[in-house]
Amino acid sequence: MPAKGATTETSEAPAEEPLDLHGPGGVRVAGVNRTFRTKRGDVTALAGMSLHARPHEVVAVVGPSGCGKTTLLELVCGLQSADSGTVDGAPAALMPQRDLLLPWLSAIDNAGLALRARGVSREEARAAAAPWLRRFGLEGFERTLPAELSGGMRQRVSFLRTLLAGKPVLALDEPFASLDAITRAEMQGWLAHVLASEPRTVLLVTHDVEEAVVLADRVVVMSPRPGRAVAEIELEMPRPRRRTDPRVVELRERALEALGVGA
């Protein structure tokens, strides 16, 4: 197996099928509390968490580990319900923190899984996924099983699966975690590129403040558990943004300060 087959530059996008968008959609989370009852007592993950995302806005959510970021995304995707407070918004597709690809499906069938889940035939799902795999530098790996893909390739397939679900909102749970710096930068480039041509509302959970500042329109900073929003930073800067840009550096410092780790 060729170990690293990912091309470094994004190949020119062929004319691809327009995705079935259920219209633009925003997300609003207001005063949400969420407590888990466990054998060792109650764990309050979220306490008074509020956040909103306007249609086609990219909102990054940063916060310390265990502050309830995954819980927040599951609420938005309707996989959990809040104990109190309200969650509304357009339908959302989740890109889980672990890639969770099905080991028996090839890259192309994993990417098209959301279509198959809706009853689309295998051929149609493949036809819809193929141009995206090409666009994401996975050409030649369509029939490869996840176990034989690199970590970065798996995350790309996982992202495409979420994208092809066709929901107006993408809930991305640390999509680029556990990648080396080069692959991560490459993936960030791909994401920005896709959102330019396929605008979606994005909730991007990340540990990486710099990533948040480079990619998002707005950064929401959460407190340690129980999580709630403690700061919001608007990023009115043109894209693409360079991480060395003084404005990016300054905003990164502000976000880190809000997190309580700034110098």
């Binding site: 989740l94 889980p96 969770l100």
Partner: peptide, 26 residues
């Protein structure tokens, strides 16, 4: 079967039968 996988299939609006067919059966 990883419960997270079943959750994921639900966000894709999969019916119980399709979840079985695509995830649990294999």
């Amino acid at each position: 079967v990883d419960p997270a996988l079943l959750k994921l299939m639900r966000t894709f609006d999969a019916t119980r039968l399709r979840i079985f067919r695509h995830v649990e059966l294999p």
